[in-house]
Design a protein around this nucleic acid. Sequence first.
DNA 1: ATTCTTGCAAACCCTTTGCAAGCTA
DNA 2: TAGCTTGCAAAGGGTTTGCAAGAAT
Lengths: 133, 133
Amino acid sequence: MSAPARRSTKQRSAVSAVLDEADAFMSAQDLHARLRERGENVGLATVYRALQVLAEDGDVDVLRTDDGGEAVYRRCSTGHHHHLVCRRCGATVEVEGPQVEAWARRIGAEHGFTAVQHVVEVFGVCAACSARD
Amino acid sequence: MSAPARRSTKQRSAVSAVLDEADAFMSAQDLHARLRERGENVGLATVYRALQVLAEDGDVDVLRTDDGGEAVYRRCSTGHHHHLVCRRCGATVEVEGPQVEAWARRIGAEHGFTAVQHVVEVFGVCAACSARD
DNA sequence: ATTCTTGCAAACCCTTTGCAAGCTA
DNA sequence: TAGCTTGCAAAGGGTTTGCAAGAAT
């Protein structure tokens, strides 16, 4: 019942490589398309499985698009952080919010809650997209 | 090409009513199930369409679950607030966070974002459930 | 009477899974 | 060799859509 060993394969490296180059959120389908463009032949199911493993190991951040509910993945930096996402073009900025962390902890404590965690996402229209109007 | 007129129907009222009573995020499927329990016979597709309209008109907030990518809806409260949810028993407390509002606005501004909105949910284990261990 | 709405079922999209063949350790 | 991985295709789960019948204005 222990976790199965993790083998290194051409496909997993490929997925990892694409994720490294594109420093942005990208869906499994996007990733798969990009692999095909490069001539790398990797099955879609394999891409999903690779991403699943990466997410389990905490090597990528996962979040859900508001439209279509696609899951998007991105290599994640270490440390707890939140995201500022452009709802027009999807551009993402990692932001930190010490005040938010403190607030969440305090709110939890005030109400007698333990093991407090929080989810924060900030949405807006980025400068580039605003200018485009 | 102007938007079609919006008619008031029994089904839409029913959806709206459920949304009013349950002051929490709820998926279309949940909502549909609750309607059936009450004896209200509303088609699933209709529930989806009603929620779509409500979201378009800005009458409900929409966000995506991390698992399964379900969309969850909640009546937009007039007063903006967040929730502290017990992940054990589901108890929910409405909380306010002026500091969080301020932080979100500032973060957005710093990065040149406009029309900034945010989603914040705090999870934990409530006092009662903690005691139960 | 007109035109929006509803319901049902089929269609869609993203994602997961079963299974035989391929590859890594 | 043993057993994780891959690919394909089929299955799954949520959401959307086409179309004829039903309501609201």
